[in-house]
Amino acid sequence: MKFGVVIFPGSNCDQDMVHVLRNVMGCETKELWHKDHDLQGLTTDDCIVLPGGFSYGDYLRCGAIARFSPIMKEVVEFANKGGKVWGICNGFQVLCESGLLPGALLRNNNRLFICQNQYITATTHKSAITEQCEIGKPLNIPIAHAEGRYYCNEETLASLKANDQILFKYCDNHGTIHADSNPNGSLENIAGICNANRNVFGMMPHPERAAESILGNTDGKVLFESLLGILTTV
């Protein structure tokens, strides 16, 4: 599997992601410039990552302008053909704004930019990025956002549940999901979801910041291993 990491003006986690994919996971990784229409030969067997940051200065709404950049036209087409697209933090916001994922990310209920290590747990195995996660096991993954409060209407929430589209929830250090372990006021502690076709993933936490022992935390690596089909040795 090859990767493409999109770089918008204001992206700031793109190089962290490129580094993890190239140097930690050993994958061929292309950098996709927002003004290009060129996916540099990526096929639907590959994966495009929308990284964290503040694309277009978060003007109007987070992710709202990025959605209209030339590369996003290609990304939407790629996703509609079945290619995998993974949005992290601002990338998740872009995916919601572009309609590839349902719902929206609102301002955190405590009004703060939250930058901390946060426990999340996978809530389903049925996605390429959670296949090898142990359900209920807490993963300590950094979050860094001001607009991360996931929200959708009741009807959408019901369909997310019916189709098993909720991938991650915020939890405590025992893996228990409750109101006190919800950092930003997200609906039902939702930290990440996928689309109904299960090829588009969005999450607020940053696994690329927790994928190397030199950084003191490898809890995020299992997501990359799942995606690449590498058996973990835990």
């Binding site: 109007l60 709202a64 704004e97 719902g103």
Partner: peptide, 8 residues
């Protein structure tokens, strides 16, 4: 198309 997001 752009100025508002009906979800929020």
């Amino acid at each position: 198309k752009l100025l508002h997001n009906p979800v929020m």
